[in-house]
């Protein structure tokens, strides 16, 4: 791990992002050996240890949170509403996004960051709509983090006064912990999944402000208890808003668009 900018030496790849490190990965420990004894067993005076205690009181995610805070500042300076879309794989996130983009691109400025472990398929699907999109491949990583998104912004350059959708890696666990600087997390759950997902994966539904219950056009063919599902989501997060949508039939999508317009307006006055 590079300690200067925090870049891992992992497999993360951001389209169009050439990452050259001018700073070397040297660890300079001084030329001379300062012999103060090598810890308790080798201390020169009996009973005297070289060990000492250091109080830290720092969050494990403090580095990520610094990157996220920088992203958030950038979003607010440029009037960008950033939304972090989270779900399990196969919930229909990309379909929901492409439909939303096609329906809204004439009235709103939009761009997309796509997070997947491998392939640029999703970014290509988004680019077919004519909207700017950038793919981040996390390699073996299971979530996007604030640092990856910060670098992605340098390349993608979302327009001022726009909405940025960040489609996180399909995973209902890990992305919950990592702030990207977004205004809201939006959880997408499809009715082809179990209605108890909100309590099986509580962290994500606890962290989200809005849940889109997707694929409701399939309800007649499924045994999915919508009321029960919403009740479970509210157990985990009494404040979560819920909308029922179908990205295929278009049902309920107008509510989502109204939410986007209203949230965009609110972000302009810093709410």
């Amino acid at each position: 791990m590079c300690t200067v900018c925090g870049c891992g030496e992992g497999e993360t790849q951001i389209e169009g992002h050439e990452h050259s490190h001018e700073h070397g990965h040297h660890h300079h420990h001084g030329d001379a050996d300062h012999d103060y004894g090598k810890g308790a067993a080798h201390a020169h005076a009996p009973g005297l240890s070289q060990s000492r205690m250091v109080q830290i009181e720092e969050g494990i995610l403090s580095k990520n949170n610094e990157y996220a805070a920088a992203n958030r500042r950038w979003f607010s300076e440029h009037g960008v509403l950033a939304l972090n879309l989270v779900s399990s794989p196969g919930s229909g996130k990309t379909t929901l996004l492409t439909r939303s983009i096609n329906d809204l691109k004439s009235e709103l400025r939009l761009s997309v960051i796509e997070g997947d472990q491998q392939t640029a398929n999703d970014a290509e699907r988004i680019r077919e709509t004519g909207v700017k999109a950038l793919q981040i491949n996390t390699g073996k990583g299971c979530h996007l983090d604030g640092h990856m998104v910060g670098h992605a912004l340098e390349t993608l350059k979302p327009e001022d006064d726009s909405i940025l959708f960040i489609e996180n890696v399909g995973n209902l666990v890990c992305p919950a912990a990592f702030d990207l600087g977004e205004a809201h997390k939006v959880a997408i759950l499809s009715v082809t999944e179990g209605e108890d997902k909100p309590i099986k994966y509580p962290d994500m539904f606890h962290a989200a402000d809005l849940m889109l219950l997707n694929k409701i056009d399939l309800l007649p063919y499924l045994q999915f208890d919508v009321e029960k599902c919403i009740e479970y989501a509210r157990r985990v997060n009494p404040k979560i808003k819920v909308m029922q949508v179908s990205a295929t039939s278009g049902e309920g999508m107008d509510n989502w668009y109204q939410w986007l317009r209203a949230t965009k307006q609110l972000s302009m006055i810093g709410v």
């Binding site: 580095k63 666990v173 890990c174």
Partner: peptide, 15 residues
């Protein structure tokens, strides 16, 4: 699985 990243966060703070 994100415990790996959390540990990387710990290491950064230590460094």
């Amino acid at each position: 699985m994100h415990e790996m990243s959390l540990n990387e966060g710990v290491l950064q703070v230590l460094q």
